[in-house]
Amino acid sequence: MAEESERGQDRLDPLVRSAFREAVVVSLIWLSAMVWSVGVSWWLGYGRSEQELRLVLGFPEWVFWGIVVPWVSCAGISWLFAVWFVRDGELGEDLEDADDLGLGG
């Protein structure tokens, strides 16, 4: 069973493998962004009174640390991810003239 699985991995198209790995990393980035953004916003921005308002560059403190900073960070991470992590690959040619029906037709 394990051997069969290894053989399957050997045959697997490299683009499928890299796309899956990238999808997993992207999902982790999404999860981290959510924990940071919602967590910090809840910690600094919920259930407060007017007297507790603190501004950072004109933003309420929770907006600056919970939204602006992670948003700018995510733009940077997206650039790094696209430039350094994502692998280019051959998508392949279309199977047939699309005016005809495909394999399921």
Partner: peptide
Amino acid sequence: MVVPITGFGILGKRLAQLSRRTG
């Protein structure tokens, strides 16, 4: 903030390939 990376990074490459393989 993560729509660009999720929108293209989760299905983009593989779906583009699969649509070609299936025509």
